[in-house]
Write a protein that binds this DNA or RNA. Sequence first.
DNA 1: CCGACTAACTAGTGTTGCCAGGTACCGCTA
DNA 2: TAGCGGTACCTGGCAACACTAGTTAGTCGG
Lengths: 113, 113
Amino acid sequence: MASQMTEMLKGTLEGIVLAILGDQPAYGYEITGRLREQGFADLAEGTVYALLIRIEQRGFVDVEKVPSEKGPPRKVYSLNAQGRTQLDEFWRTWSFLAERIGHLKTAHAEGEK
Amino acid sequence: MASQMTEMLKGTLEGIVLAILGDQPAYGYEITGRLREQGFADLAEGTVYALLIRIEQRGFVDVEKVPSEKGPPRKVYSLNAQGRTQLDEFWRTWSFLAERIGHLKTAHAEGEK
DNA sequence: CCGACTAACTAGTGTTGCCAGGTACCGCTA
DNA sequence: TAGCGGTACCTGGCAACACTAGTTAGTCGG
């Protein structure tokens, strides 16, 4: 059974990761772990890696290989100028959608009075 | 170039339509028109019809054919008990996601101070 | 008859997240 | 030294979903 969340993440997950990278650079394994801690428990590891490759190919991030004490070298991603533009666009789209859906929700609440 | 909105609607559009039907019954052409008025200007008509068929097959709505004064008969959809359950589930999932992303946004705003 | 509006439907396409693996590096322990 | 767990990254195939670009059909006015 496909969870609601799976479908809802389509389109938003990219923005979420861009927002994380906008705060500070990070690498894939780290991002997956953080998201899982923050409630996205079922997030598939492969999903994050695929997404990172995608946003790299679109030129939203810069990549640097950094050796790790334990394990293979990390690929640290950092948001560049184009990525920041994309992130702003994400916030605009998200705000619009959230506002629209917010209206529906209050209408829903009104109806329950 | 696929718009951000297109991808973001995946998963949420179903909830939006369920919410509309939760308020009062409606038919496809009407729903498409209303959504377009409310800012989803680029929403494809076919998308709504496909979605309605989907939620009908999943048993979330009841259908009634009602003759129209002008044009072919309308298929009026109304939310049933199972649909209301699904709608509640949507609100839960949405609330969680919106809250999580809200955190990222404030973190973003903090960083801009 | 023809265009415009209403109203519903469909086949094919692209994007996206998930599944279920695999590879590789390191340290610890039996 | 062989195995195991943790770290870290990647891949091929699949399913769901919205969009494209149409088609069909009913009603009305010019």
